[in-house]
Nucleic acid binder design. Structure first.
Lengths: 234, 234
DNA sequence: GTAGTTGAATATGTACTACATATTAATAAA
DNA sequence: TTTATTAATATGTAGTACATATTCAACTAC
């Protein structure tokens, strides 16, 4: 391609479906719609935008995938609230992601759990503390913890998952669940390298105690220490 | 939801395009492909799955949207590394999200900035510190800061954006940029309610000093104090 | 033989038609 | 008035046809 034709083509080529998707998004953003409002019919959109119905359907399919619209058979398409994590739920898999993304996600977990402290202290309930204690007690009583890494990590997941749930932030909590396969994979890889799982000095009982009697700053410090083996990966 | 209940609960009707999307995703997850590998042609997929090419194209369009595949005109579709934030880039807009999602995102920012400390201390460079100082100095010298909330928030964004960039976590940094419109919107709403923007006791110079001479734990504490006005919203 | 050009082959991109399906809304029956 | 039936309609799916762009091979020129 010579420089003349290069100048004639300003943007990287976008398919019509992508263009229509963006137009629909701008349309929705600009007109402050409410949830439940109706979208024009596919045929009308196609006619108005001067494209085929196929193209419109591809664009709408993407909006549907994000949870931005729902389509009913005769009613047409109605606007819904998009799902923040709809994309992530599909691709959060070790076999789909590269090293850099996995490392980013790994780090994100560490950041979240340390930074989450204030949410926990604002929203903790007595019943939550009790549940944490139950988990920690079951963990302490389970002799399989000595032998099996799987068993250990089962309690680890349960305990920390409960913390995310306690945060009262459902996006955060859902994100943690998506994050698990990545984390497990990276731990498994680490295990094959003969790196001892090296437990931190702060255990779950210590964390519970801090959550019950301490401050958010103290909890952050202890959580940071609890996660020290993982921080070694930075 | 475990494997069993997943089968027991009758799924809400899924369109063929959605089913094909999932089949393609499972196919990609199961077969550990490498980036650059080719996917079968649309017609072959359609024939193999027993659906029309339209349906296959809708599914592929979704994968393309997530950055999982790229399509070249004659070459066919090749596997690429998915973009973790491709979904978010489209929907991170105050006019598309509801209160709960916005609140979740708002909280997430607070969690991230407090929890980010260790990343910063591992990866900070002298040049980064210098850049932070430059920003803080420009801010201190700008007399418009007194009058205009916009000017203040401009420096705020620049300073904190630099911190995210320093984290060395590009996903985190990109997420912060997406988060900005939400944050601005919520601050604007707060401003209309006559709530004074109430600056925290810890300013940017304090943060820089801690970053230069202190510890990660100290930085977390000070960042938490710096963000105190925002934490009031919890 | 090498470089550059041309042109055919081909997979994706777009348009269009036809019909299936499900659900609403109107109508008829009780 | 209530219930059952029917028609209308917007999305879902299938299929054909052609446009477009890019690869790859054949070919020409030097």
């Amino acid at each position: 391609m010579n420089f003349l034709t290069a100048n004639l083509i300003p943007k990287k080529h976008q398919s019509l479906a992508e263009q229509v998707e963006q137009k629909l998004l701008s349309y929705l953003k600009a007109n402050n719609f409410n949830i439940g409002d109706q979208l024009p019919k596919e045929i009308e959109l196609a006619a108005h935008l001067g494209v085929s119905r196929n193209v419109v359907r591809e664009a709408l399919s993407r909006l549907r995938m994000m949870g931005m619209v729902e389509s009913k058979k005769r009613k047409g398409m109605v606007i819904t609230e998009p799902d923040l994590l709809s994309g992530l739920t599909r691709i959060m898999d070790p076999s789909l992601l590269g090293k850099e993304n996995m490392q980013d996600i790994f780090e994100l977990r560490l950041v979240l759990e340390v930074g989450m402290a204030d949410l926990l202290f604002v929203r903790k309930k007595d019943t939550d503390i009790q549940e944490l204690k139950d988990i920690a007690n079951r963990e302490a009583a389970d002799e399989n913890c000595q032998n099996s890494q799987d068993v250990r990590s089962k309690y680890e997941v349960e305990f920390h998952g409960k913390l995310y749930a306690m945060s009262g932030n459902s996006t955060l909590s859902r994100f943690q669940k998506l994050l698990l396969p990545i984390f497990n994979y990276m731990e498994a890889v680490e295990a094959t390298l003969d790196k001892a799982p090296a437990k931190g000095k702060i255990n779950h009982f210590d964390l519970i105690d801090t959550l019950e009697n301490g401050t958010a700053a103290q909890f952050r410090k202890r959580m940071r220490e609890h996660l020290t083996p993982h921080y070694a990966r930075l």
